[in-house]
Amino acid sequence: MAKAYDYLFKLLLIGDSGVGKTCVLLRFCDSAFSTTFISTIGIDFKIRTIELDGRKIKLQIWDTAGQERFKTITTAYYRGAMGIMLVYDITSEKSFDNIKNWIRNIQEHASAEVERMLIGNKCDMLDKRQVTREKGENLANEYGIKFMETSAKGNINVDEAFFSLAKDIKAKIDKRAAIDPLGKPAVIKPKLDPHNKKVSTSFWSRCSLF
């Protein structure tokens, strides 16, 4: 049966204010980039459907405000997330140091199953770099998560990051479905089995008009 999408994944972007979360999202969903900094008010979301291993995956990506004053609001959105991107700015040591606090937030508010990924944004600004690639990789290894450096401005690794995170979520879901075929997680969109008696085909089996 043809479907609009096979999976719906809810992703979340978190990190300090000004690291480029909104720009990364804008680049991924609208193929655009803006140099104007407008602080996100609370929360916003965008949607993009991608294809992975011949399956259509709808990504509902929630963009959070990084400022402390929005913490009450943004942490409430961790609960529904299946994948979280932790974004820091490679030109800001402070934003990198704060990743540990963001990880702590995830542990406190998100599902234990949530996939995580570390993103070092603004990698086009090499002359202003404060955080080495190695430091980013080490932190990612410490938490057992994937790491990528991106640039929303230069369109470097943005698609790759989202595709990689989506792939990991899909792998986890497929694995769970294989172990427990009866347990049907809300996000799985299994292909309908024609032998499955539950599928309502009675009308279609006698759909002749005469």
Partner: peptide, 21 residues
């Protein structure tokens, strides 16, 4: 109270967005 209300309303917001989809 703040977390409780925030969590309920965030759930409502996310679910409404998904229902729209």
């Amino acid at each position: 109270p703040l977390r409780y209300v925030g969590d309920m309303l965030a759930w409502t917001h996310q679910s409404t967005a998904s229902e729209k989809e």
